[in-house]
């Protein structure tokens, strides 16, 4: 996946049954971001696989002042990449992970 300079990881173990995930995002390579942002800060948030979209969460992060508008695409992409990976992992291990 193209590196956005952002890192998204599960904030807690994925029990594979809950559609709501706890994710954590932080800036790994500040040079790759265009706008101002806070270094060394991780943002933990919940993401519902059925109702949420990466773009929506990225928009909310911009609105909350975590990132500049110009970086919302990178934020959405990094969330999307991680969520896609989690969905694939869940498909491989359907029975309670």
């Amino acid at each position: 996946a193209e590196d956005t300079g952002l890192r998204v990881e599960l904030a807690e173990d994925d029990d594979c049954s809950n559609s709501s995930l706890g994710l954590r995002l932080w800036v790994e390579d500040p040079k790759k971001l265009k706008g101002k942002h806070k270094d060394n800060e991780a943002i933990e948030f919940s993401f519902n696989l059925e109702t949420d979209t990466p773009e929506e969460v990225a928009y909310e992060m911009v609105k909350s002042g975590f990132f500049h508008e110009s970086d919302s695409k990178a934020v959405a992409k990094s969330i999307r990449d991680r969520v896609t990976l989690i969905k694939k992992t869940r498909e491989k291990k359907p029975a309670g992970c």
Binding site: R7, N40, E41, A42, E44, S46, E60, S64, F66
Partner: peptide, 27 residues
């Protein structure tokens, strides 16, 4: 943890906490 801030936006809760130095260098 006093460094943790909770930000609410459109119903979603964001918890902000410091990234441990080791995580920054390791990734």
């Amino acid at each position: 943890n006093s460094l943790t801030q909770v930000v609410h936006s459109a119903g979603r809760r964001f918890i902000v906490s410091p990234v441990p130095e080791s995580r920054l260098r390791e990734s």
